[in-house]
Amino acid sequence: MRFKETFKYISISCRKNLIIFYISSLIFSFIITLLAVLDGEEFYLRTDVFSFMMVSIVYNSSYRQNKLMLLQNGISRKTYFWAELSFIGVISVIFAFLENIIFLIGNLFIKNINIQITYNFICKIDNSNLGVKDYAISLLVELGMLLLLISLFSVLCKLLDRFGNIVVFIFFILIFNAALIIGLFGKDLIFIGDILGITNNKIYRLGISTVIVILLLNTASYLVMRKSAIRLSL
């Protein structure tokens, strides 16, 4: 298994874009939050989700190029899948940590910024005290959420073409505000939301349902990759 070499290729080939997009979304988040806070609003724009979305788009739109490059170099689709998954895992962990570091830094300037544990873009600045356990949970939740989103994005991008990437982007935003949408669209959705742990903030349910969905999405992703063959006329 030439896993190491494949991982190296995936990480280096999108390294530049990753950094550019992350910093861009950091700046973007910072500006929006600053404007909001100066306006007297008590919310801030999460950096991790937005930057992750940007990264996802960049990363997944290079799926086809990467696939061709790796097949040319004798790498199996299986190895590609595991290297990709590992890469995504690593990036998710890094992003989740960075997000929490930003909170800690933010706390130096604005007393008691706390996050509301939810799947939303926008977080309410909450002045109640959160302990270490809460931070740990928030980290895991963020991680789960990021993995979930990129898994979804990943499998959709593999199935759709370039235009499809834009559709997926919009879809992403909608998924992101699932709690809001569920709230808007009625009782039936709330029922589903409750089971999955989205609407009632039941962390364990949220965790389990997230893990199950991540597994399903990545299985689908693998199956799509496995089936892909290079057409003769390119």
Binding site: S62, N66, L68, M69, Q72
Partner: peptide
């Protein structure tokens, strides 16, 4: 195995 062909397999 290494295969050399006219297929465009390297990133543009």
């Amino acid at each position: 195995v290494y295969c050399m062909s006219e297929k465009k397999l390297y990133p543009y």
